[in-house]
Design a binder for these strands. Structure first.
Length: 478
RNA sequence: CGAGGUGUGGCGCAGUUGGUAGCGCGCUUGCUUUGGGAGCAAGAAGCCGCAGGUUCAAGUCCUGUCACCUCGACCA
């Protein structure tokens, strides 16, 4: 009975109102707070620590694949933004403009970067002369601004934090390989660090990035069955190179345009973590990026020797994991609930009885499993349990995704399924944008991606019935 | 941009036919507690979003305005 009791009250359940559950968790777990600036959030220390861990893991992978970090300007002059046609049309409705410096009106407006393709291209046109200058493998960590109308913490804010990789290559093939390589890096990171299973695939022309030749994505399924694009890579061909007049002398002594890629993952991924692993007791942090992996709670702290023992344990644990000791005078029950809300993967309880028996209590956040562990085994037991939590989270998310993925072969079934069953829908597509539009208007689903791993659901397009060879994932998206 | 909603101590809210602003949580101090959000006692804290108006009197009625939230549309 007591086991089933909701441990954290005062929080909306996800079945009741998923959107409210989400914002409640974000606020109560202290990831972020609303700010006085419309559509912009304050990322609080706990959220920032999470982002720093995400940064470090990703940045290590970028460096390991030969990339270098740079820092570009915050502003883009209007003339520069307008150099590539598709690109400016795609972003025009959502750029913020600076029109004055002090009291003086500017000769040319400056936009606050919504993305930095144009800045990178402008710079590349200066520094690329020869095939010997290639490839250029640059990345930057920064924030960008897009004037969004509807905002939600992490999922869509006017200013958001991300990394954007921008690379230039001698050949198209090399650039395509880079595009696919970085997609793999994102997928591996999502699954191995965040315990979020993802579907790798290609976006349709309707859904691709403004100015890109092709766009790839990793799609994750949230608890409510909606899709969240969690990372994206683009192959640009030489479109921007031509628009920005970036040329190099090739090995054959002819002038050529380099081939380009870009790729990004944003603070939106924090929303994905919340909505993939969270439950009605709050957040559940994937252990490999959790700001605190183990919280040490002294029980009956006033008793002789308990606090000292807890301090010594925390000190010992800090040598092999991220640990926090809470020796505040809040009650033990309060602390249990608090660190569950914050999603700390493991809780270590140490009280007088444990000290007598040379043991402690370890409790997993993901399934509340409790074990008594000898104090002599912590160095092996804790890493094992952290791995088990990671694995448990991944498997639970994967099982849910599979359970909520359906296949349909005709329009009526698609409409019906989209209306009553949240989740992903696999269906064949003829390749026509008109069919995509119709499915969006009449069934309320958009194409998520053309997955790498294809299946033959049927012979014909789910919409028009014409012969089709491509299987797509469809769904509702954040 | 369309529809809806909300602005009252830090947070969540109540406030009836206009009549001197209240509750819960949190906060501070003290004592007792401490293995699932502790108890008692004493305290601090509010231009009722803002600007006009009606009235003897406005949190409450009227007009305007601003901000934020939710859902759509849009959104690489």
């Amino acid at each position: 009975m007591a086991e089933q009791k909701k441990m954290v009250d005062n929080n909306t359940s996800m079945e009741e109102d998923f959107a409210k559950w989400y914002t409640d968790v974000v606020k109560k777990a202290e990831l972020a707070a609303y700010s006085g600036v419309r559509g912009c959030m304050v990322v609080r220390p706990y959220g920032t620590a999470l982002w720093e861990n995400i940064h470090d893991e990703l940045d290590g992978r970028f460096k390991a694949t030969g990339h270098e970090n740079v820092m570009m300007p915050l502003f883009i002059p209007e003339s520069l933004l307008q150099k590539e046609k598709d690109h400016v049309v795609g972003f025009a409705p959502e750029v913020a403009w600076v029109t004055h410096g002090g009291d003086e009106k500017l000769q040319e407006r400056l936009c606050i970067r919504p993305t930095s393709e144009t800045l990178f291209c402008d710079h590349y046109s200066e520094i690329i002369q020869s095939y010997r200058d290639l490839p250029k493998l640059y990345n930057q960590w920064c924030s960008v601004v897009r004037w969004e109308k509807t905002t939600r913490p992490f999922l869509r804010t006017m200013e958001f934090f991300w990394q954007e990789g921008h690379t230039m290559h001698e050949t198209a093939q090399e650039a395509v390989e880079e595009t696919m390589k970085m997609l793999d890096v994102y997928a591996e990171f999502a699954e191995d660090c965040l315990a979020i299973p993802v579907i790798k695939g290609k976006k349709t022309d309707n859904e691709k990035f403004a100015g890109a030749e092709s766009t790839y994505t990793i799609e994750a399924m949230m608890h409510d069955g909606k899709a969240l694009q969690s990372g994206t890579t683009h192959y640009f061909g030489d479109g921007f190179s031509k628009a920005f007049n970036i040329q190099f002398t090739g090995r054959d002594n002819t002038l050529q345009y380099p081939h380009q890629t870009s790729w990004g993952m944003s603070s939106r991924i924090i929303g994905a973590i919340v909505m993939t692993h969270g439950d009605n007791n709050g957040l559940v942090m994937p252990p490999r990026v959790a700001p605190v992996q183990v919280v040490v709670l002294p029980i009956a702290m006033h008793k002789e020797g308990v606090l000292e023992k807890a301090q010594a344990l925390a000190e010992r644990l800090s040598k092999f994991c991220r640990v926090k000791l809470d020796d505040s005078d809040n009650s033990a029950g309060w602390k249990f609930a608090e660190y569950e809300m914050k999603g700390v993967p493991l809780r270590l309880e140490i009280g007088p009885k444990d000290i007598e028996n040379n043991q402690c209590v370890l409790v997993r956040r993901d399934n509340r499993e409790k074990s008594f562990v000898s104090l002599d085994e912590l160095e092996t037991k804790i890493p094992e349990l952290l791995d088990a939590v990671h694995q448990g989270l991944y498997e639970k998310a994967l099982a849910r995704r599979e359970e909520m993925t359906y296949s349909v072969t005709n329009f009526e079934a698609m409409k019906e399924n989209a209306a009553v069953r949240p989740g992903f829908i696999k269906a064949m597509w003829c390749g026509s944008p008109a069919c995509e539009d119709k499915l969006k208007d009449e069934a309320g689903v958009t194409s998520r991606c053309i997955p790498e791993e294809q299946e033959k659901i049927s012979e014909s397009c789910v919409c028009c019935g014409k012969p089709a060879t491509l299987m797509l994932y469809w769904g509702k998206a954040y």
